[in-house]
Nucleic acid binder design. Structure first.
Length: 847
RNA sequence: GCCAGGGUGGCGAAAUUGGCAGACGCGCCAGACUUAGGAUCUGGUGGAGCAAUCCUUAGGGGUUCGAGUCCCCUCCCUGGUACCA
């Protein structure tokens, strides 16, 4: 089979320009103080979510976001900005380690090979990254600072008075370990036996591990935690002004899950203590006819009566045997047992029974609730199942039967607050409880502290040692703390991390041993964007001047990546950023000013791309068939960046044809079949009509890039090309303008044509990259005449050209003298005439 | 369940504040140039109808001179979430 003839020689010119860009270091952005740095230019930081370099290589989803940021980066450079556009590798992570377990190959080797192949592919697409800033999270020069930041967190506490992280020295209490932002706690964790590690809540999906899909069980273990909950309020508040998609903000807000309510104490007559619950509906206190404790609540054993002891023990055993998956699966029917104990409802002094049930979670609120069956679906189901009292205390606005009504209404059967609408009832009863020391208003969050340790090999070791059962930080001078070489990466199965196998490494001194856990994969990605500002710095995680320059004024100006990181990565990174900001290391409180999520690219069959369906598109195949420029432009022409959309090979062909038409605007084939500069290119004045297209295109492409609406920008350039395709004389100035506008999208093609034009016509500068973005002139966009629609009763009956300046009365006259309009007005009476200048005239008749 | 986003030609999609629906591309049809066309160029292309004309932005209702756009109801798709008191 003969090879399809290339529409233009992209296979020669693309490698040529990629090499030249590398040699000229064109995309290297000097830092303040470096040679070549121009302080007069504004900065622009455009960032991609860096990839995990998997063995599978790049798929078409990666370059979608990368192309978008590359267009913005190249555009901002042409507009005179100092552009920071870096790329790096999220190189620690489970897949390389799982591969090492299977093959014995060290993760470092696998990772290095994968990085090399990723980088080669990215370069082949022609991205304008500053490769001199490349970082890898698994590189000791990088992770020494990840460990350093951990130490900053470890040495800090959250001062509730200032609402800021402060050095632990400012803590005046007697137990610093209890307030550190990094602490060790025995907590019920998500233990994944298959992976041999604990996982964060965020890494568990439907009771299975996000990586690998293995079952996960609950089990108490001593783990490192980061006190992210202290920042819950700020993580919500400071989200507000950011230029992020509203949906992502909402996702984060929901994840943090703030709810306002009250803590209420219920006296326990048989014991000298009381039981505290959290409720968002203190106004329903009179309706609390029973209480429920989580089965794991430590109070359960104290409260349970002799008679109920056996039943409670049996229920607890049953629950703890269940995995999370089963526990949620079986959520249809409520289960639980009576403890035999009773509490006193503080509102009406009624004795109410205390139960335990697994629908109450130990990890939220106080691990105990008051059951208000009349106004809570779950409580109602539970009460009906076990025959507990149901008492209506809120009257819905409509006045229908209140049982099961969960909305706001009017308090009833509640002597203290009868007749009050819900909001006031809440206020009133809470104040009443506060006066008596029986309760107080509180805020609860769904967000839990971040479980930060993993029992894995391929991650950052903690810069921590243990002496006499207590943890201590190692000195900063001992960083980086590099993982010991191992041959056996398998999980031990006991929960003891694989690092335990490196006996020499573990022994720190006669009396001290090293922490054996490693950090989760999120650690490196929490701050990599800061390292990009100053990747070679040996003395600090980022130089102050570089940080102030690149991260100043809102931080990262544009951050593009997938929605899968909407809560986890973005929340964790914001948290670390705030700690470092509070400690005075950073100049802004939020890292990412503008965030955009690219949509998923589906296979041609409309299904998710997967080996299983055989619908996977390999970027390199597309590039070898159509060129990198066509690949880039197609990815952007498919549709809106944020939208999910299917791949289409014929669509690639269409975009490729467009680029070939651009090529032939400038080039033609001679007798020998060689491409030479076209005879129709000349230093001629564009016509008035051509000027209009040129300036309309300048305007639209610029505005569309700002709005990340790349598909419509390309459509406009297609209109431009169509307008110049069949003309005898192609004015040089018009072509030059087009090439600059096209450059961010198709950098190789535009560079080549620019250079070719420059050989024949003296163009300064000789390379397009040193050219500046053109400005449009409004005067070329205005028309003397416009076409307006003439409507009768909202239906278009004719279109006519009128002077742009035509006034309302003139337009009315035009409409009423138009024979098509008159035809439809026959026998009818004109009731009114609506005139929209430059748009339409609508003649409305009486019915 | 709940929350968010979305349904526009045969297909991917356009459409400032409500103001000519379908830009641009794919596909298809016709023509030109050709020994040839899976190259290139030109024209056409939402549906029905010979036509005048009528219908058309998931479906139904409403507001308006005028609705893809605003309001109400219903259906379908995608993503998130799941006993969070």
């Amino acid at each position: 089979m003969s090879e399809r003839r290339k529409p233009y020689p992209f296979d020669q010119l693309e490698p040529k320009w990629q090499t030249r860009w590398d040699e000229r270091r064109l995309f290297h952005a000097p830092n303040p103080g470096d040679p070549g740095f121009d302080p007069a230019r504004p900065k622009y930081y455009v960032l991609d979510m860096f990839p995990y370099p998997s063995g599978a290589g790049l798929h078409v989803g990666h370059p979608e976001g990368y192309t978008a940021t590359d267009i913005v980066a190249r555009y901002q450079r042409l507009r005179g900005c100092n552009v920071l556009h870096p790329m790096g590798w999220d190189a620690f992570g489970l897949p390389a380690e799982q591969y090492a377990i299977r093959t014995g190959q060290h993760p470092e080797i696998t990772t290095r090979a994968n990085i090399a192949s990723f980088k080669k592919q990215l370069k082949r697409i022609g991205f304008s990254y500053d490769w001199e800033r490349e970082v890898s999270t698994a590189d000791p020069d990088f992770f020494r600072w990840t460990q350093w930041i951990f130490l900053q967190i470890y040495h800090s506490w959250f001062n509730p008075a200032t609402q800021r992280a402060e050095p632990i020295a400012s803590y005046t209490g007697d137990d610093p370990a209890s307030v550190r932002l990094a602490y060790v706690a025995e907590v019920p964790v998500n233990w994944c036996p298959e992976l041999g590690t604990v996982l964060a809540n965020e890494e568990v999906i439907d009771g299975r591990s996000e990586v690998g899909g293995f079952p996960v069980v609950r089990r108490p273990m001593r783990q490192w935690m980061l006190r992210i909950t202290a920042f819950a309020e700020r993580l919500i508040d400071e989200l507000e002004p950011l230029d992020w998609p509203a949906g992502i903000k909402l996702l984060q807000r929901n994840w943090i899950g703030k709810s306002e309510g009250a803590e209420v104490q219920f006296a326990l007559p048989e014991h000298d203590t009381s039981l505290t619950v959290f409720t968002t509906r203190p106004d329903t206190l009179y309706g609390a006819t029973y209480m429920v404790l989580a089965p794991e609540n430590p109070l359960v054993d104290r409260l349970t009566t002799m008679e109920q002891r056996a039943a409670v023990a049996e229920y607890k055993a049953e629950i703890s045997a269940k995995s999370d998956l089963e526990r949620t699966d079986l959520a249809k029917d409520k289960s639980g047992v009576f403890t035999g104990a009773c509490a006193i409802n503080p509102a009406n002094n009624e004795r109410i029974p205390i139960w335990i049930a697994d629908y109450v979670l130990m990890g939220y609120g106080t691990g105990a609730i008051m059951g208000v069956p009349a106004h809570d679906e779950r409580d109602l189901e539970f009460a009906r199942q076990f025959g507990l009292t149901i008492l209506d205390v809120v009257q819905p606005p409509g006045g229908e039967t209140p049982t099961g009504y969960t909305g706001d209404g009017i308090a009833i059967n509640s002597p203290l607050i009868d007749g009050l609408p819900t909001p006031e009832a809440k206020e009133h009863i809470t104040a009443w409880l506060e006066e008596r020391g029986l309760g107080r208003r509180t805020i609860n969050y769904k967000l839990r502290d971040w479980l930060f340790s993993r029992q894995r090999y391929w991650g950052e070791p903690f810069p921590i040692i243990w002496r006499d059962g207590k943890h201590e930080a190692i000195a900063e001078s001992e960083l980086p703390l590099v993982p010991p070489p191992l041959h056996d990466f398998k999980p031990t199965g006991t929960g003891e991390p694989p690092l335990a196998r490196a006996k020499d490494w573990v022994r720190y001194s006669d009396k001290a041993t090293r922490e054996l856990n490693t950090m989760p994969q999120w650690a490196g990605s929490c701050w990599y964007y800061l390292r990009f500002c100053d990747p070679g710095n040996r003395d600090r995680f980022v130089g102050q001047e570089a940080e102030r320059y690149w991260m100043g004024e809102g931080g990262v100006d544009l951050y593009v990546g997938g929605t899968e990181h909407a809560v986890l990565h973005l929340l964790y990174a914001r948290f670390w950023h705030k700690v470092l900001f509070d400690l005075g290391h950073l100049s802004t409180g939020e890292p990412f000013q503008r965030l955009v999520n690219q949509g998923i690219i589906l296979g041609e069959d409309g299904r998710k791309m997967s080996k299983r369906w055989g619908n996977v598109i390999d970027p390199l195949d597309v590039i070898s068939g159509y060129g990198a420029d066509a690949f880039r432009c197609y990815e952007m022409f498919m549709g809106p960046l944020e939208q999910m959309k299917p791949w289409s090979m014929t669509g690639v062909e269409g975009v490729s044809r467009f680029l070939a038409r651009v090529w032939r605007l400038v080039m033609e084939e001679n007798q020998a079949g060689e491409w030479v500069l076209s005879n129709s290119v000349a230093e001629a004045e564009p016509t008035r009509a051509q000027l209009k297209v040129i300036h309309a295109t300048i305007k639209k492409v610029g505005e569309d890039i700002d709005a990340l609406s790349f598909n419509t920008a390309i459509a406009q350039m297609m209109i431009f090309v169509n307008a110049f395709t069949n003309v005898e004389v192609r004015p040089l100035a018009a072509l030059r303008t087009l090439l600059v506008l096209l450059n961010p999208f198709a950098p190789h093609l535009s560079s080549e044509l620019w250079e070719t034009l420059g050989r024949q016509f003296p163009i300064a500068p000789p390379e397009i990259i040193d050219q500046s973005w053109p400005e449009y002139r409004e005067e070329f966009l205005v028309e003397d005449e416009v076409e307006i629609a003439l409507q009768v009763n909202g239906k278009v009956r004719d279109r006519v050209m009128v002077a742009t300046s035509a006034l309302t009365e003139e337009l009315e006259k035009v409409a009423l003298s138009n024979h098509r309009v008159l035809e439809f007005l026959q026998g009818k009476q004109v009731k009114k005439i609506v005139v929209i200048q430059k748009k339409l005239v609508n003649v409305v008749t009486a019915p």
